[in-house]
Design a protein around this nucleic acid. Structure first.
Length: 254
DNA sequence: ATGGCAGGAAGCTCCTGA
């Protein structure tokens, strides 16, 4: 089973890239973030025409998540139960017995910002919720844009980013709290090239100079992690015309 | 030097992202 996550930074703009990617890479599951589309405008038919099913939770201008799957999506859940939030950042479903949780973690803007406090509260609520989900489902995959670079090696210039949003100690602690639930960072189960990133700033030729961060992740519960045979970042779509600033992350599970 | 891209909604400029 091939599972993937991709922050597309507007599905309206990136629909062509997504459809091409589905055709060539043939994932079983693709989680999307930052669709920036109200549900009424979601391009369901385009995705279904490729033999996929899709569920989505979106809003105008900001946020928006979706799960695309070859197999039926059951027990669909929108948002994080018990966490009052108008922002569409989480959608879950069960596929072939595996609980799939697609997240778009708040950016946080800066560590002094109220948005940063919202981010930490959001991550805390997610962690509490996932504890229950893991208890109920056993096999769970958490995929998405975490907006956290877990370690210094996930940052092109750790000194410049030290203590900044996406890299601060509380954010990294929140990431480790998810791992403490028994979720493994599938990317780090394998040997990887140095300076592997999943996001590069549009500005200053960030991609060409590989000035990036690894903030998009696939976390797997124990038995899935044991069956994981590889995890890679597909930089090819980042080289296309009008790319998303994020690249897809892909995990292969036996 | 806080900028530098990009997307979206609004409207000829702003907010947000990371």
């Amino acid at each position: 089973m091939k599972v993937a996550t991709w922050n597309v930074n507007s599905l309206n703009v990136r629909l062509g890239h997504v459809l091409d990617w589905l055709k060539t890479r043939q994932p079983d599951i693709l989680c999307l973030q930052e669709t920036k589309l109200e549900d009424a405008r979601f391009p369901r038919a385009d995705i279904e025409s490729l033999g996929y099913q899709v569920i989505f939770s979106g809003q105008k201008t900001y946020n928006g998540v979706a799960i695309i799957s070859r197999s039926p999506l059951a027990d669909v859940l929108h948002d994080i139960p018990g966490f009052a939030d108008v922002q569409k950042r989480c959608i879950s479903a069960t596929v072939a017995g595996v609980r799939i949780v697609c997240i778009y973690v708040p950016n946080g803007q800066s560590v002094e910002s109220e948005k940063y406090q919202y981010k930490l509260a959001w991550l805390k609520a997610l962690t509490v919720h996932l504890q229950n989900e893991i208890r109920q489902h056993g096999e769970l995959a958490l995929l998405g844009d975490f907006n956290v670079a877990p370690e210094d090696r996930d940052v092109h210039d750790p000194a410049a980013w030290e203590g900044q949003v996406l890299c601060s100690a509380p954010e990294r602690e929140a990431f480790r709290a998810l791992q403490t639930l028994g979720l493994k960072d599938s990317f780090r189960q394998f040997e990887q090239p140095e300076k592997s990133f999943s996001w590069w700033d549009y500005r200053m030729n960030g991609f060409r100079r590989n000035l990036g961060l690894r903030i998009d992740h696939i976390l797997l519960s124990d038995t899935l992690a044991q069956r994981c045979r590889g995890c890679t970042i597909d930089v090819a779509p980042r080289k296309l015309e009008r790319p998303s600033d994020h690249a897809p992350v892909v995990a292969e599970i036996a």
